[in-house]
């Protein structure tokens, strides 16, 4: 076996449940063979443990709500199915929400995948590129007649998440010493904005119209087009727009605006 074949076999074994005999040199002495097997399993434990711990650190609420044993099994299955493809693990959990969605073990927890997505977006927001927020004063530099043609750029950390479940409430509860019991009923739909504010990722509950407006702005619509589609869809009056814009500027969700091609950095 050359080095490449051996490393391939080793990687396969480390991410499996297989017995270890194939990787070890044949030794006659049973005590030596036993120690070799123990040694080899230290590496497999290290691989699984360190990657599961990396996930646990990124998904504290998911881990808390399902408990350590369930999360351990979930994380181990994820690590084996989707080992990291780069040494930086800060965003390793990107695929966990989709993995939970497909996992038969999680079928009875339909909100778990959305909770995982929320936590991953928080992680992503925390490490997103720095960009100073656009202020109202800067936006006021724009000719009022042209304001409708403005395209607003959202902060790199900003992400929108719609869920049929009150995942913001489930998320917050997991950081309490004694999480409250949350009753899942109808009308618990949530429209959320995840955004880094200061040094922390924040989860902000939005009005559906604000969410819809931001979603269209994020796709690159002009302010006028985004608002007119939102107002029609949700039957809102134009008088609401200035209040909504002022609120979003206070949150610091925008970083720049432009008219067509030229971007005006804040």
């Amino acid at each position: 076996m050359n080095l490449a074949q051996w490393q391939q076999a080793c990687a396969d074994w480390l991410l499996s449940d297989a017995a270890d005999t194939a990787l070890l040199a044949a030794v006659d002495d049973p005590a030596a063979a036993r120690r070799q097997g123990l040694g080899l399993r230290v590496y497999r434990n290290n691989v699984l443990y360190s990657l599961c711990e990396a996930l646990r650190a990124q998904f504290p609420a998911v881990a808390r709500v399902v408990g350590p044993a369930f999360f351990g099994a979930l994380a181990r299955d994820y690590v084996r199915a989707q080992p990291p493809c780069e040494p930086s693990l800060t965003l390793y959990g990107e695929g966990l929400a989709a993995f939970i969605e497909r996992s038969p073990h999680c079928a009875s927890l339909p909100w778990l995948s959305a909770l995982a997505r929320l936590e991953w977006l928080c992680q992503r927001a925390l490490h997103a590129a720095d960009s100073p927020a656009l202020s109202l004063v800067q936006l006021q530099l724009c000719d009022p007649l042209l304001l409708g043609q403005v395209r607003l750029q959202l902060a790199d950390s900003a992400a929108l998440l719609h869920s049929a479940y009150p995942i913001d409430q489930i998320w917050t509860a997991q950081f309490e010493a004694e999480p409250e019991m949350i009753t899942l009923t109808l009308n618990t739909e949530r429209w959320l904005l995840i955004l880094r504010v200061g040094e922390q990722a924040q989860v902000i509950t939005l009005d559906p119209a604000v969410f819809e407006l931001l979603r269209r702005l994020q796709e690159g619509a002009t302010l006028e087009a985004a608002w007119s589609a939102t107002a029609t869809l949700l039957q809102r009056g134009d008088a609401e727009l200035p209040t909504i814009l002022a609120y979003l500027l206070t949150l610091g969700v925008f970083t720049a605006f432009d008219f067509s091609t030229e971007l005006i950095e804040s």
């Binding site: 480390l14 991410l15 590496y43 990657l51 493809c85």
Partner: peptide
């Protein structure tokens, strides 16, 4: 070593102490 192909294993895995491994 810690990576083979696209799989990164996040542990400091042992090298065979051979001349071929040394050259690589």
């Amino acid at each position: 070593w810690s990576r083979h192909g696209q799989r990164y294993l996040n542990d400091l895995l042992p090298m065979p102490l051979t001349t071929a491994a040394l050259a690589q």
